[in-house]
Design a protein around this nucleic acid. Structure first.
Length: 586
RNA sequence: GCCCCGGUAGCUCAGCCGGAUAGAGCGAUCGCCUCCUAAGCGAUAGGUCGCAGGUUCGAAUCCUGCCCGGGGCACCA
């Protein structure tokens, strides 16, 4: 409908410009939005006001003239000029009523479109390092990314979701060492735990699994391992130097093959845990992209060489630096350290290069807000390769702060004591978690109240929406109990009987759904859908309270039932995109 | 110091690619169950849109400066 009105306005503009011999400005964009109240029409456009200045007319006069040039449209009841120069469209009752039939016809496909025209979009999200379980911060990225992927797919984009696994580099060694130290501890070779090691319980679990499979096979003398090492931080030394030295020693004592076995066991255990966690959360990927594979195939090396031969890299103090400051970054960045190790940034370059080479028309990276510093350098690298960086978009997701009622939950990220995503899911359930994570715009810090998420009241938007769905199911169950049958064709035939205010506003909400999907997809803002569903559920609850559906008169009853079944369908469709279930009873 | 995000009703937030009287939920107050689930509905009260300038016919929305809150600024990941 919206698109059709835009087309009408374009025609009117052409026709008007021709009779007035005026050339329309190239940049003129015809905007149409939903009117707020009935007095402002169903749709409104501000073109006249935007065009007034270049055309040197008063906005109202211009609006009036444009109206005169508007072609008739069967679904447009009337057009009015109002306020400072708005053109308000009132659509016919039949057009408004038609959404019910449309919803029944398309079912779970209602709201889907081809607006994206099959454009290939690569969506990377979460990509947490496999050094421990996902925590509640990752949960937001997961819920956001998954919802965004779904809404893009619904709008006709060809979405490819990817999780980039940082399974190479120094953090993996620290992880391996952490497991080894716990393992030795369990086998009677205790030693001080490195300050920089990973302390979580999951490290113990991985060590136990290692013991179960290999027994004493990797047992080393703690004394040998610790002999002549530099001091750790708690002994007045440098924790980074200490742990690096410890890693070297362990590698040497164990031998490369044994060391790699432990490393692989640790990485696999954690990656598997993350994948299972996400799958249980309803978050799925087309591909898990391994950094290690990128390193092993030489892709990282090649990417750096390409930049080198392009003159975008120089050497200083034994390290290789990428001239990112030539491309808008604050400073140049190291891609290969003086000790010969590639930095993570080097892998990131290779990964993004790979994304571009795979031919995605649009690439979206969903990052936590703490990664915002990466945007400039990643962009810089792709610009250095000559790619059109407007294809790459970063979406920063702010943190979620957990509350239990008014009490803020502590969330120290480093030292081990954090709330995992799994714990959150177990406490509040997947539905509440998925919805709460995406109900705010991603730039907004999220106050996540656990008590609210669990509460079964109208305070809780998840239950409020799900309840609307369940209520429709309940009405139908009641109907069956009374031995009434719903004749949908009869309902659609008499849909014009739905002329009560509550019915009209519900119809208007239902008609808005495809526009919401499109807006949420184009703006990459799934929260718009969450907001919409709350409004839709509200319109339904109001209607429910004001009218009885199971009336004696068959025509009216069938029409009302057709309407609420359509409502149920739209709620189910919308919740599905957000990854929230639509229960039949509550 | 530099960079990113936020500052809208008592609370949590929509609105922000300029438009009509700034919206919603919660909380507060007052109402609604012999009736399809009250996990619901209605009504009332509640606002210098952080502050100050600027652009514009028109600014919560765009620009500049400042204030407050969060985050980021490594040969860390």
């Amino acid at each position: 409908m919206k698109d059709q009105l835009v087309a009408l306005l374009h025609q009117a503009l052409q026709s008007w410009a021709q009779t007035e011999s005026i050339t329309l400005p190239e940049s003129l964009e015809v905007q149409i939005e939903r009117g707020r109240g009935s007095e402002h029409g169903d749709y409104a456009s501000n073109v006249a006001m935007r065009l007034a200045k270049p055309a040197q007319r008063s906005p109202r006069d211009l609006a009036t003239q444009l109206c005169a040039h508007l072609p008739a449209h069967p679904q447009v009841e009337r057009v009015e000029v109002a306020g400072p120069g708005f053109i308000n469209f009132f659509i016919t009752q039949d057009a408004a009523n038609a959404v019910v039939a449309e919803i029944h016809q398309h079912g779970e496909h209602y709201g889907r479109s081809q607006a994206g025209a099959g454009e290939r979009v690569m969506l990377e999200f979460v990509s947490a390092n496999p050094t421990g379980p996902l925590h509640v911060g990752h949960g937001r990225g997961a819920a956001f990314g998954a919802a965004l992927g779904n809404v893009l797919a619904a709008a006709g984009y060809d979405v490819h979701r990817e999780y980039y696994v940082n399974d190479a580099g120094r953090q993996m060694h620290i992880l391996t060492l952490s497991v080894l130290v716990r393992y030795l501890e369990h086998r009677g070779e205790p030693m001080p735990f490195p300050v920089n090691g990973y302390r979580g319980d999951y490290i113990h679990h991985i060590a136990r699994d290692l013991e179960a499979e290999h027994g004493d096979r990797y047992r080393l003398s703690a004394a040998d391992l610790c002999q002549d090492l530099p001091a750790d931080e708690n002994a007045g030394g440098d924790k980074e130097r200490y742990i690096d030295a410890l890693i070297q020693r362990a590698r040497h004592l164990l031998g490369e093959s044994a060391y790699q076995t432990i490393l692989s066991a640790a990485v696999n255990a954690i990656t598997t845990d993350i994948a299972e966690d996400l799958a249980a959360f309803g978050v799925h990927y087309e591909r898990w992209f391994s950094e290690r594979a990128l390193v092993d195939t030489g892709a990282v090396e090649q990417a750096v060489e390409r930049l080198l031969s392009a003159g975008a890299i120089y050497e200083d103090n034994g390290a290789l630096w990428f001239r990112s400051s030539d491309y808008g970054d604050d400073k140049d960045r190291v891609v290969r350290r003086a000790d010969g190790q590639m930095t993570y940034f080097a892998s990131d370059i290779a990964y993004h290069l790979d994304k571009f080479e795979r031919g995605f028309q649009r690439i979206i990276d969903v990052f936590g807000a703490d990664h915002h510093g990466y945007m400039a350098r990643v962009r810089a690298s792709l610009e250095a390769f000559g790619y059109d960086i407007s294809r790459l978009e970063f979406r920063l997701v702010q943190f979620a702060i957990l509350y239990r009622g008014h009490e803020r939950l502590p969330m120290s990220t480093r030292s081990g004591e954090f709330v995992t995503l799994r714990e959150l899911r177990e406490e509040v359930g997947n539905d509440a978690a998925r919805f709460f994570y995406v109900m705010r715009r991603p730039e907004q810090h999220l106050d996540f109240d656990l008590e609210l998420a669990k509460s079964r009241s109208n305070d809780n938007p998840v239950y409020y929406i799900q309840y609307a769905h369940a209520r429709v199911c309940s009405v139908l169950a009641q109907m069956a109990e009374r031995g009434i049958r719903h004749d949908n064709n009869n309902g659609l035939k008499h849909i014009s009987q739905l002329d009560a205010d509550h019915e009209q506003s519900l119809l208007a909400q239902l008609g808005r759904y495809p526009e919401v999907i499109q807006a949420a997809a184009v703006g990459h803002e799934p929260h718009q859908l969450a907001q919409y569903l709350r409004e839709l559920a509200g319109a339904f609850h109001t209607y429910y309270n004001a009218h009885t559906f199971l009336v004696d008169e068959a025509a009216l009853r069938d029409a009302r039932l057709s309407l609420i079944i359509a409502t149920r369908q739209v709620i189910a469709n919308g919740l599905g995109i957000l990854g929230v279930s639509a229960p039949e009873s509550m």
